[in-house]
């Protein structure tokens, strides 16, 4: 069974868990994701991999409670088990395919936003282990929402923080930070952006203007996650692609972010109702119609 061996609250609504999942830990590479079902009636939840320990057979996940299922997930305690953990899914990051010497020649920037920091950490760690030095901007609305700071520092020599309210690091969002670095003469030829879709969209607009090749990672609606249902489709360069088998990483300058944001709203009403049912129990009958 998929036992939770450690659990930490990283920020408001953000959790980190180490889970026993030898099949996933055995093969996971940076950039890939996994799917969890909390219990036997659970929905399949796709999550990026934050870290893995091949020998111990343990994977680390970081998630934010955004709906009823992730809320349920946050209530599972150390020593208890998830019903299912399956993966690794999706293609490993393209960076992992390049010769190390070539990577060392590149000037690479990572941009991490919110829980997108978790998959970025996984890539930074891999690069660090392979002796590749890169820069990273980590952004959040406010200082309290910045996660994994110590871990990120340990694997990145140039780590910049950006907070919308100026409570830590550069005052402004990640785009402000990138522009500032660029103006100071820091130039990059490869950028990886992972975070909320809206952040990826604006970061990509800027990197396009600056002429930096940019990769993003999509966390779309999914069901099976193995290339069967087609729920995760998005438009990349005008073509239909499937995040679960063609991605989750894509060329950020080719992705139709507006449509991706629209598609992510598909089940919002039902998810909201499920959340109310979970948090308010029987007091929420669903009959008054106020919430619909």
């Amino acid at each position: 069974m998929f036992e939770i061996v450690s659990k930490t609250k990283l920020a408001d609504k953000v959790w980190r868990m180490d889970v026993v999942a030898p099949l996933v830990a055995g093969k996971a590479m940076p950039g890939q994701f996994l799917i969890i079902r909390v219990d036997k009636d659970g929905e399949r939840i796709p999550l990026t991999v934050c870290d893995f320990d091949r020998e111990k057979g343990i994977v680390t996940i970081v998630f934010q409670t955004v709906g009823a299922e992730t809320e349920r997930m946050s209530r599972v305690e150390v020593g208890e088990c998830f019903a299912d953990v399956v993966g690794p899914l999706g293609r490993p990051s393209d960076l992992c395919d390049l010769p190390i010497e070539e990577l060392k020649k590149k000037k690479i920037l990572f941009i991490a936003g919110g829980v997108g920091t978790a998959p970025v950490y996984n890539q930074l760690q891999w690069l660090h282990e392979n002796g590749v030095d890169v820069d990273c901007i980590q952004g959040a609305r406010t200082k309290d929402l910045l996660i994994l700071e110590d871990e990120m520092r340990a694997v990145t020599s140039n780590l910049y923080f950006a907070t919308d309210d100026g409570s830590y690091g550069i005052h402004g969002n990640v785009c402000v930070a990138l522009q500032q670095l660029w103006d100071e003469g820091k130039h990059y030829d490869h950028c990886v952006v992972i975070g909320p879709v809206i952040m990826m969209k604006f970061a990509c607009q800027l990197t396009k203007k600056l002429g930096i090749h940019t990769i993003i990672s999509m966390n779309t609606i999914m069901v099976d996650g193995t290339g069967m249902c087609g729920a995760c489709r998005l438009l990349v360069g005008g073509e239909v692609k499937f995040a679960c088998v063609d991605g989750p990483e894509f060329d950020g300058h080719e992705v139709d972010f507006d449509q991706a944001m629209q598609r992510s709203r598909l089940y919002k009403t039902q998810e909201g109702e499920l959340m109310l049912r979970l948090t308010e129990g029987d007091t929420h009958s669903g009959n008054c119609g106020v919430c619909s």
Binding site: D41, E43, V223, M228, C229, G230, Y267
Partner: peptide, 30 residues
Amino acid sequence: QSLGVFSANEYLTRSNLMGAFSPDSRTPIM
């Protein structure tokens, strides 16, 4: 790509595998 366009695979997987046809299901279906 509009909201409300599904593949039959997705629609049926939600209903059959995930049991979304039941009002008690935690997996949504339109």
